[in-house]
């Protein structure tokens, strides 16, 4: 079964392994390895991607549903020589250690800041509450989101 959707700004066709294949597996098979596999049951947030701008757990999302939609993975946000403002803020705030949770964290942050460029600390916590990190202790992640928000908000105001 074939489906097509816009991934990271490019329209592409994908062949499903089975009709019930989950988006996480499909994306990783096609080389989008920033999408991480953790619990496979919606509890850790490592597999979060954006579908039509909303953060979703790709381990709970049937791939066929992505047909004709827009998907964003970390590969589409920025590359080594041109990082996105959220990626830069995570690096500068020291919010990345092993990095396993980082793609999900950054995409949850993007979904939040696209909708609400000036979130309160509580709003940040709600947006990221489904992203687990075993390394950082979360403080620096909160700092990174605030830093990114400040930069985005400033840019919007100019």
């Amino acid at each position: 079964m074939k489906i097509q959707f816009v991934i990271n700004n490019q329209n592409k066709e994908f062949e499903l392994k089975s009709e019930t294949e989950i988006l996480l597996d499909l994306l990783r098979r096609y080389g989008y390895v920033s999408v991480k596999e953790g619990c496979r049951e919606g509890q850790c947030g490592a597999c979060i991607v954006l579908v039509d701008g909303k953060a979703i757990n790709s381990c709970l999302y049937p791939a066929f549903r992505a047909n004709n939609k827009t998907v964003l993975t970390l590969e589409g946000l920025g590359q080594e020589n041109g990082l996105d403002v959220i990626q830069k803020s995570f690096l500068e705030a020291g919010a990345v250690q092993c990095g396993y949770c980082t793609p999900g964290m950054i995409l949850s942050t993007k979904a939040l800041l696209d909708k609400n460029p000036s979130p309160t600390e509580d709003e940040i916590k709600v947006a990221l509450e489904g992203n687990l990190c075993r390394c950082t202790g979360y403080i620096k992640i909160l700092d990174a989101v605030k830093l990114a928000a400040k930069r985005i908000y400033k840019k919007l105001k100019v």
Partner: peptide, 12 residues
């Protein structure tokens, strides 16, 4: 509703 799981789950 806010007590149900986390944002990415609630979007589904």
């Amino acid at each position: 509703s806010r007590t149900i799981a986390a944002t990415a789950n609630r979007n589904l």
